[in-house]
Design a binder for these strands. Sequence first.
DNA 1: CGCAGAATTGATACATCTCAAGCTGGGTGG
DNA 2: CCACCCAGCTTGAGATGTATCAATTCTGCG
Lengths: 248, 248
Amino acid sequence: MSHHDLKLGAPDCGDCPIRHRAVCARCESDELKRLEEIKYYRSFQAGQTVIWSGDRMDFVASVVTGIATLTQTMEDGRRQMVGLLLPSDFVGRPGRSAAAYDVTATTDLVMCCFRKKPFEELMSTTPHIAQRLLEMTLDELDAAREWMLLLGRKTAREKIASLLAIIARRDTSLKLKSAKGAFTFDLPLTREEMADYLGLTLETVSRQMSALKRDGVIGLEGKRHINVPNFDRLMEETGDDSDGGMLG
Amino acid sequence: MSHHDLKLGAPDCGDCPIRHRAVCARCESDELKRLEEIKYYRSFQAGQTVIWSGDRMDFVASVVTGIATLTQTMEDGRRQMVGLLLPSDFVGRPGRSAAAYDVTATTDLVMCCFRKKPFEELMSTTPHIAQRLLEMTLDELDAAREWMLLLGRKTAREKIASLLAIIARRDTSLKLKSAKGAFTFDLPLTREEMADYLGLTLETVSRQMSALKRDGVIGLEGKRHINVPNFDRLMEETGDDSDGGMLG
DNA sequence: CGCAGAATTGATACATCTCAAGCTGGGTGG
DNA sequence: CCACCCAGCTTGAGATGTATCAATTCTGCG
């Protein structure tokens, strides 16, 4: 364990910022207590690898703060991001001993880890964890299918617009939003990471970002700070249905 | 309900060909009994739509025999397949009232349907169903991520080879296989459906099929009957790691 | 100041798409 | 039983979007 990968005394679940959205969301206080016994925090610096595909993985975890990515790499180096993990998202698969993907911290990252064995035992005895995990997994599957449409059928411009909309929407659901109008956020990804998310090259990402700026869809301050004068305009560029598709 | 969409008296779960792989795989006989009370069979002809995206969906179901697809369609008609449902696969999401995707029978299809409300109640009381559904959903998520790599980074030739390998492998896991060597199967998809799966046009699919035939990777008898003289050769064309990635 | 990583921009190559013209095989009606 | 028909498929020629290769230009930081 390097000094960049710190195991920390974990704070109380009661104070946890993701308490109500993570895999533990539905737990009663006695269940929470049992989780606390098997949990520990780990921190990673931006750019650090959390785990390599194929490595033994003896824990599962929730992202507490920061952003991590799941990527697959082909033998010749082609890379595709297959997961973007935000606070409260879950990493690892109960019942699997090796990591299936590379997990990387793209920002400074704090994870709440559970030793896998006891976590699995806990899962089989307390339905609340399994229920919540099922719900989260179904949500991820829906997101993956949306992503497949993007990868298979959208143009480069639509892909960029879609990614910006996804990040903007997430940010907006946390912070408050100036109704309907302009707002602002920071890109948590480099151009190359955006390219890996979208199935493009970083040059194409750069060109399309410039094009969206030239056309007034977005504004750029520095490389990472984006402002969107008109969210509806951005949405038009994504190619998606206007009504966000109510799934109930 | 048209005469092509028949509701049938459902046979006994004991005789069910997917009993050991479907969502009911882990159920005890008393749980099975309760499932039997809320289940009914429906049949569809090849080409029929099971349900349209956005429609009210008051059941969930398992595919018993045949093949169905999930597809998303953009306003201008671009289509992307996001799921390929084989016998024992599950359709529908507990806790959601509307279908999120178009579901279509690509072959004649028999589904074992459960009324959604009672199914959800059953799920919350019997952990075996939820456990199995979680496992199946995690498998689907892995498959979706594999698919994302295909869509984002593989060439047309690699996409075709990958799809053929997937179908071949599935067929082989059912039927017996002539060890390592040549074998044979039927494509359950039209060229257009293959294109929708792979994020290509049907012309590109056709050209690459011809190229793989010319290069001796596959043989074609008619349009749909494929034979693979050397499975390893086909695998080399997929671009995937040689060792099938042990996930344990 | 000046270096290094990140990003932009340009010129060209190439894979796939698009549009268009035939082919093929299985089913149907005369 | 044959001719026709039509959906599914193949093949061709040319257009186009994105990748590739190659310079620059930013930006933050030691």
